[in-house]
Amino acid sequence: MTDYLGIVSTINKECKILFVEPFRLVPYKGHHNIFLFRIEGSSTALNRYDSEPVKVLKWFDKYWLFIEVKFIVEKSKKKQKLISIIHTNISISVYEGEDSDEKKTQLFRAEWDDFNNPNELHSQPHWHITSSQAVEKTFEEYSNHFDNGDFVSLLEDQRAKLFDVKKIHFAMNGNWQANQSHIHTVQSSEQVSKWLKGLLNHIRVELEK
């Protein structure tokens, strides 16, 4: 599909009803044939995926969202027209924290990568569980608070024993029971917006329990 602006426009139109604060994906810095859009947030958090400070939007209670949509577009060599999207990446991170807390805890991340690759190893879409970073934050705070080398060494040894679960791509929509693939491609802007709305509604129900 070629209508990457249509995907962004449909998300902005259909998903704004889920928020009290204004919701909108806006263009962010890209590079040549990379087109990047991010949520307009009102507070700061740290995206642990690449250790980058990002703006997050207040969702409800103490929960915040960071959403990024990225397109890598192939261009015609003759007319330099956009002819096809060769990679679509949608990333949604849920954070927990107070308004003034710039070290909000990143709980989990949902991603949908469409590489146009039928042999893609990772399930698409998928989850990443990142809540273990709250434990890592505690280790860091204790390490900074104490000067005892043996105690700090003990903390580091214990942290090294923790399984790094955030590296795993947990399948979200694998249809193995129907003998189908674990890969779902991006077909239309409506498909993406329905997935995103359903995902956010489902997450909120779970967080409000």
Rank of each mutant, 00 (worst) to 15 (best):
Y142R: 07
S84M: 11
Y142G: 07
R48C: 05
E190V: 10
S189Q: 08
F60H: 14
S51K: 10
L82Q: 15
S51N: 12
I17E: 10
F37C: 07
P118I: 06
V94Y: 09
W195M: 12
K209I: 02
E74F: 04
S93A: 15
K16N: 13
T10Q: 15
H169C: 02
V73T: 10
V26C: 08
N201Y: 11
E190Q: 14
M1C: 09
W112Q: 07
L154P: 08
L18C: 04
V73Y: 03
E21W: 00
K166M: 03
T88P: 05
Q191W: 03
I168M: 13
K209H: 12
S143D: 15
E14M: 08
K166I: 00
N144E: 09
E140S: 09
A171V: 02
T130S: 12
S153L: 13
G41F: 02
W112A: 06
K197Q: 14
G198Y: 04
S131W: 03
I86R: 13
W195Q: 09
Q187H: 08
A45V: 07
D50F: 12
F66Q: 03
I11V: 14
V135Y: 12
D101K: 05
I67A: 06
K70D: 01
V26H: 07
V54A: 02
E141K: 15
F66L: 07
S42C: 10
N119W: 03
R109D: 01
H31T: 09
E156V: 08
D164S: 11
F71I: 04
K62Y: 06
I72D: 13
Y63G: 04
W64H: 02
F151T: 11
S123I: 00
A178N: 13
H126Q: 03
I92S: 10
G41M: 04
I85R: 05
E74I: 04
P118H: 01
N119A: 05
L25W: 02
F146W: 12
H87F: 10
K70I: 01
I183S: 00
S181Y: 02
Y4G: 07
E98C: 08
M1K: 05
I17L: 06
W112S: 05
R38N: 13
Q133C: 00
E190C: 01
T185E: 11
K167R: 13
G41P: 02
S153R: 14
N89G: 13
S131I: 10
K166E: 14
P22S: 04
S123T: 10
S189Y: 00
L65P: 01
M172T: 03
V94E: 11
Y63M: 03
L107A: 07
L199P: 00
K77W: 03
H202M: 13
V69E: 14
L196H: 08
